[in-house]
Simulated assay, not measured.
Amino acid sequence: MNVWREDLLTRLSAAHSATEVFSVIEREGKALGFDHLAYGVRFRYPLSNPRIVLLNNYPEQWQTLYAERGYVKIDPIVMRGMVSQIPIVWSEHYSRASNTFWEEARQFGIAHGWSQSATDCRGLQSLVSFVRGAEYLGSAELTANGARLSFLAHAGHEYMCHQLARDHHAQDSGELTTREIEVLRWTAEGKTAGEISILMGISDRTVNFHAANAMAKLNCANKTATAVKAAILGLLD
C-alpha cells in the first residue's frame, strides 16, 4: 500500500495540468474496476455565483441530458457531497431522486458508484465519483478498496484543485506589490483612503494609485471587490 501511495503521489506531482491529474486518477479508478470518473470543483469566487468546474469521462449524451434537465439540482450524490465528507455509496441514495433520473443514468452506464467530497483550507470544495454500469458495490469490495478510494479522492482533490486554481486564476496572475497588498489589507479592514494614507504615511493620491493598480491586476471594478478577491485568493496572507 505504501509503495502504491508513493507511486501515485509521484505521478500526480509530475502532472502539469488538470487533465493530466484526471488521467492519473482515471487510470487508478479503472484498475479498481470503475469505467467512469467525475470531478466537480467549486471555487469560492465570485461570491454571488461561485465558479464550478466539471471534468468527467461520461458519455457525451448523458452530459448533455444532465445539463439540459438541470439534474444537478436533484442529484442525491451532489446534494450529499455538499454537506458531508463521509464516503457515499450510491446504492444507499437511490430513493433520494426521481426514478427517471436513475433510469436514464443507467442507460448510459451510470449505475453504481462511490463518491467522496473534500474541502481544504482555501475553501475549495470537490466531489469525486468512481462509477460503473455493472457489478453492484458490495461490502467485501468496499472493505478491500475503501481505503485506496479515499486516498485517491483526497490526493486527487489536492492536485486537481491546485492545477485548476492555477489555470482559472491565470487572468489574475499579476503580482501585487508590497504597497498594493498593504492598501488592500487596510481596505479589507474598512479603512478609507484618508485613513490609509495616515496609517501608511503616504498621500491620498498615492493610496488611490496603489488601489487602482491592484484593481487592474485582479480585474475588479472597485477597491472593496479587489480586497475581497485578494483575500479569497490568499494574496493578503
Score class of each variant (00 low, 15 high):
Asn2Trp: 10
Trp4Cys: 04
Leu12Met: 10
Ser17Leu: 04
Gly33Phe: 07
Phe34Cys: 08
Phe34Gln: 09
His36Arg: 11
Tyr39Asp: 02
Gly40Ile: 15
Val41Asp: 01
Arg42Lys: 10
Phe43Glu: 03
Tyr45Pro: 06
Leu47Asp: 08
Leu47Asn: 08
Pro50Leu: 04
Leu55Phe: 12
Gln61Thr: 08
Trp62Phe: 11
Gln63Met: 10
Arg69Trp: 00
Arg69Asp: 00
Gly70Leu: 03
Ile74Asp: 09
Pro76Gly: 13
Met79His: 15
Arg80Trp: 00
Ile86Val: 05
Pro87Glu: 01
Val89Glu: 06
Trp90Lys: 04
Ser91Tyr: 07
Ala97Lys: 07
Thr100Glu: 04
Glu103Trp: 10
Ala105Pro: 06
Gly109Trp: 04
Trp114Thr: 10
Ser115Gly: 07
Cys121Gln: 15
Ser126Leu: 06
Phe130Leu: 04
Val131Tyr: 00
Arg132Asp: 03
Arg132Ala: 03
Gly133Asn: 09
Gly133Lys: 11
Gly133Thr: 11
Ala134Asp: 15
Tyr136Thr: 15
Leu137Gly: 01
Leu137Tyr: 06
Leu137Ala: 03
Gly138Arg: 03
Glu141Thr: 05
Glu141Val: 02
Ala144Pro: 01
Arg148Thr: 07
Leu149Gly: 03
Ser150Leu: 04
Leu152Cys: 04
Glu158Ala: 15
Arg166Phe: 07
Asp167Gly: 14
His169Leu: 09
Asp172His: 15
Gly174Thr: 15
Thr177Phe: 05
Thr178Gln: 13
Arg179Glu: 13
Glu195Lys: 15
Glu195Ile: 14
Ser197Asn: 08
Ser197Ala: 15
Ile198Pro: 00
Leu199Thr: 14
Ser203Lys: 14
Thr206Gln: 12
Val207Asp: 08
Asn208Pro: 01
His210Asn: 11
His210Leu: 05
Ala212Met: 12
Ala212Asp: 12
Leu218Glu: 03
Ala221Met: 12
Lys223Cys: 02
Thr224Cys: 12
Val228Asp: 14
Ala230Asn: 01
